[in-house]
Each structure stands twice: as C-alpha cells, then as structure tokens.
C-alpha cells in the first residue's frame, strides 16, 4: 500500500484496522499523523452530531409566519416594536462575551483526558510529523513527550502534546495562530495552567492540580523552536 491508497482508505474509514493500513502506518510517520488528524476530527464530529435534545427556548426557533392581516394603522406600532427588538438584540449580541482562550483550552483538554494516560516516550519522527506542518520543532531531549496529535482548535490545526514532568503530565498546545500580549493564568475545573507569548503565537500549558507550573512553563518555552 502506498501513501495515496492509505489516505483514500483512511479518508473513508479513519479507524480502519486493515492489515495493510496498519502496516503502512507503522512505516510512514507522515501518514500516521494524517490518520491521527482524521481520528481527532471524527471525535469532534461524533460530538457535533450529538446535538442537545433540550426543548428549544421559546422564540428561538423561527418558523415562516402566515401572511399578516393586521390593519394598516397598526403598522407604525409594529415597526417601532421591530426597531426596539433589533436594538435589544444588537446590544445583547455586542455585549455577549466571546469564549476566552482559557475556557477554550480547558474545554479542549477536558475532552481528551485519555491523552494523559500515555506513558511511552514518542520518537523524534512521530513528534516531528505533528509539529512540522506548523513550522515548529522541539530541541532534542529537552522534554519527554508521550502524546502528540494535531487537533482542531479555534478553527486551526494545532499540535497537542502531553509532556511528562517531575510534577506529572501536562498538556501543551502550540498555538501559532493566536497572539497574546502577556502571560495569563488558567484556572478552572481542577485545571491549572498558563498561556504565554511565543515568538510566533502562544503556548498553552495545562495540568490537573500540578505544582511548579512556572518552572514547567520555562522548560517547555525553551524546548520549542519556531520558524518565524
């Protein structure tokens, strides 16, 4: 099986256990990373398909209304109501807080708790295949990576690593697309972490009840090399 055949088959069945697929995956780190991307997309896809079945809020669903038979003299009042409604909706829309980077990071990490269970260090090829598309490298031996995958995050594919530290595993998201002005702390749902500016974009580091985060952040920051 060559790379093209592999990608055709994986594109239709990302979780395929076909012998030829498994064999090619073991031999080609780039195709293995591609399969991991598709598997990550399928996880997101499965969650996306499971829509909430809570009854829609009243007024949330807009059905085509029957032709109005309201007398003309009431049009003015209707128009005034409409303008007020639009103004209220616009005010709510503008003032509605966008999801913060911290909440996005926690949301992403909490959906992949199994990533922290990986214990075997990954080889340079496997890590490189995940980092290379984003123009990022890790310095040899600077950190021990036990999980590496490309994930959807804020409409971008980003490297998602799990790095083993003396204080336990931490998740590292390398966010080349996201600039931050200064270091910010993440705290919520038992997760603690930091987001720090990087030469290109930012780095999010999150652990569960992990101590010594500043030292870990420094270690990770110094381990990552960016193509600027």
């Amino acid at each position: 099986m060559n790379c093209l055949d592999f990608r055709r088959q994986i594109g239709a069945e990302p979780a395929s256990h076909d012998v030829a697929v498994v064999q090619h995956r073991a031999e080609c780190a780039t195709c293995a990373a591609y399969q991991d991307e598709l598997l990550a997309m399928d996880v997101l896809l499965a969650r996306a398909m499971r829509i909430s079945l809570r009854p829609p809020e009243s007024g949330a669903k807009t059905r085509p209304a029957p032709r109005s038979t309201v007398p003309p003299r009431r049009w003015l009042a209707l128009a005034a109501s409409l303008v007020i409604g639009i103004l209220v909706a616009a005010t709510l829309w503008v003032s509605y807080p966008a999801p913060t980077l911290a909440s996005e990071v926690i949301g992403h990490v909490s959906h992949e708790p199994g990533a922290w269970n990986a214990r075997d260090p990954l080889g340079a090829d496997a890590i490189g295949a995940v980092l290379a598309p984003s123009g990022i490298r890790l310095r040899d031996g600077a950190v021990e990576v036990t999980f590496a995958k490309r994930c959807f995050f804020e409409r971008h594919w980003v490297p998602h690593l799990v790095v083993q530290t003396v204080n336990g595993p931490v998740t590292v998201l390398l966010l080349a697309h996201r600039q931050v002005e200064s270091l910010a702390h993440i705290d919520g749902q038992d997760f603690t972490g930091v987001v720090l500016p990087a030469p290109r974009g930012s780095i999010a580091i999150v652990g569960r009840n992990v101590s010594g985060l500043d030292d870990i952040a420094r270690q990770v920051f110094e381990a990552v090399e960016w193509d600027v």
């Binding site: 997101l44 896809l45 969650r47 996306a48 829509i51 999801p99 909440s103 996005e104 949301g107 992403h108 959906h111 959807f152 995050f153 804020e154 409409r155």
Partner: peptide, 10 residues
C-alpha cells in the same frame, strides 16, 4: 456554549 470548534463542525 463552551466549544467554538464544536459549533463550527456542526
């Protein structure tokens, strides 16, 4: 509410 990627995918 809490996952923009999920809404994008939907």
């Amino acid at each position: 509410d809490d996952d923009a990627a999920l809404a994008e995918m939907r």
